[in-house]
């Protein structure tokens, strides 16, 4: 479904991604793990079109998207769920969710999509007229996810959903992720919380200093010595 090939990305003169290649198949949960500053968000922003790669390509459903503007990429069915703090804090919860359905195809169906999102996160229905800045960390994450779902995406890219969440809440988020996959949405999950993430991932990549250093099945990587020492503290 998504094919990233030999991607090189720079910030000014410093290189953030080096020859990164990865693949996400339909209805998979693929994880991309690594420490802060490894280049995970950079990769997502490049796929979304916020950053331009110096070389390499990104293909989605067989079409090159690495030269498209962000809003065009979004319209193809890719959504990025930025970490929970990136809500529009001057707007209500309901308006934030509606912004997710901004693309014209999704806008027409926003009422029914909204009901579906409220079914996943009932608490958001109660809070729909509240200002987004008054929410707790968990609620913010729910709004961020719900806002992403409002575009009826085929591929959903999560950026660090554990950010600012208690461990228990993060496990709930991962449950939601699994549910979404059952509904047919493909998932690319970017995380620092390696153990829990690898447990639910079909396949995973490990990113270090802008390089992919390991890839494999999620469960296999949990047993990998390098992963164990570097990320699981064993």
């Amino acid at each position: 479904m998504l094919q990233v090939s030999r991607l090189n990305v720079f910030y000014g003169k410093s290189q953030a991604l080096r020859d990164v290649s990865l693949k996400v198949n339909e209805k998979e949960i693929v994880a991309l793990v690594g420490v802060n500053g490894a280049g995970k968000t950079t990769l997502l922003n490049t796929i979304s079109g916020l950053l331009r790669p110096a070389s390499g390509s990104v293909e989605f459903l067989g079409k090159r998207i690495d030269r498209l503007a962000p809003h065009k990429i979004m319209n193809l069915g890719i959504c990025q769920i930025p970490e929970g703090r990136k809500l529009f804090s001057d707007m209500t919860v309901g308006d934030n969710l509606e912004m997710g359905a901004y693309s014209s195809a999704a806008w027409k169906r926003r009422k029914e999509t909204l009901e579906r999102v409220y079914k996943v996160f009932p608490v958001l229905k109660e809070r729909r007229n509240q200002s987004a800045k008054k929410l707790s960390g968990g609620e913010r994450q729910m709004v961020a996810i719900g806002r992403g779902l409002m575009s009826n995406p085929g591929l959903c890219m999560f950026d660090e959903p554990s950010y600012g969440l208690a461990p228990k809440l993060f496990l709930e988020v991962l449950e939601v992720v699994k549910q979404l996959r059952e509904q047919g949405i493909t998932i690319l999950l970017v995380e620092q919380n390696v153990r829990n993430t690898l447990q639910i991932a079909d396949r995973a990549y490990v990113l270090e200093n802008g390089h992919i250093v390991l890839e494999g099945k999620g469960k296999d990587l949990l047993q990998n010595e390098r992963v164990k020492t570097a990320y699981l503290g064993m």
């Binding site: 916020l50 809003h71 529009f88």
Partner: peptide
């Protein structure tokens, strides 16, 4: 309105607005 909300979103956080599909 849809465009009005996009204006407010863009005023607050242009990159995130782009991620919502706003030009």
């Amino acid at each position: 309105s849809r465009v009005g909300k996009a204006i407010r979103a863009t005023a607050e956080d242009p990159p995130t607005a782009e991620l919502m599909g706003v030009n």
